Computed example of a mutant assay.
Amino acid sequence: MLGAAVFAFGQLKPFGSAGEEETIDRSQPAVLKSVRDLSQFHAAAGEFQVVLDIENDVKWVPAALAGERTLFVAAGSVNAYVDLGSLQDDGLIVSPDGKSVEIRLPQPRLDRPNLHHDRSYVFSQERGLINDLQALGGAPDQQRFYVAAEAKLAEAAKSSELLERAEDNTRVMLTGMLQSLGFQVKVTGD
Rank of each mutant, 00 (worst) to 15 (best):
F123I: 06
A43M: 13
A63T: 09
W60G: 01
Q142K: 09
E21C: 03
R26K: 10
A45N: 12
K152N: 08
P62R: 07
L92M: 01
Q134G: 01
L136S: 06
V35G: 07
N79K: 14
V50C: 01
V147Q: 14
F72S: 09
A45G: 06
V73I: 10
F123K: 15
Q49L: 05
S77I: 10
S95A: 14
V147T: 15
N79A: 13
L136V: 08
E21F: 12
D89A: 10
H117N: 06
S17D: 15
L133P: 00
D97M: 04
R26L: 13
F48W: 14
Q107L: 01
Q88L: 00
L12V: 12
L133W: 00
R119C: 04
S34E: 15
F41M: 05
P106S: 07
K59Y: 02
P14W: 06
D132K: 09
D90W: 00
Y81I: 11
D97S: 08
I93Y: 00
A64Q: 06
L52G: 07
D90A: 02
Y146P: 03
V35A: 14
S77H: 13
S77R: 15
E126V: 12
G91E: 01
F145Y: 15
E102Y: 00
A45Y: 04
E68Q: 15
F41C: 02
F41V: 02
G67R: 12
A74F: 03
S17K: 15
A43L: 10
V51C: 03
D83N: 14
A149M: 06
P113R: 11
V50F: 02
K152C: 03
P14H: 01
V78F: 14
E20Q: 15
R144H: 12
Q125H: 09
L32E: 10
S124K: 12
P108C: 07
R127D: 03
D25V: 11
L38R: 11
T70N: 08
L105W: 02
Q11E: 08
F48I: 12
Q142H: 07
N56T: 13
P106A: 05
E55F: 03
L133F: 00
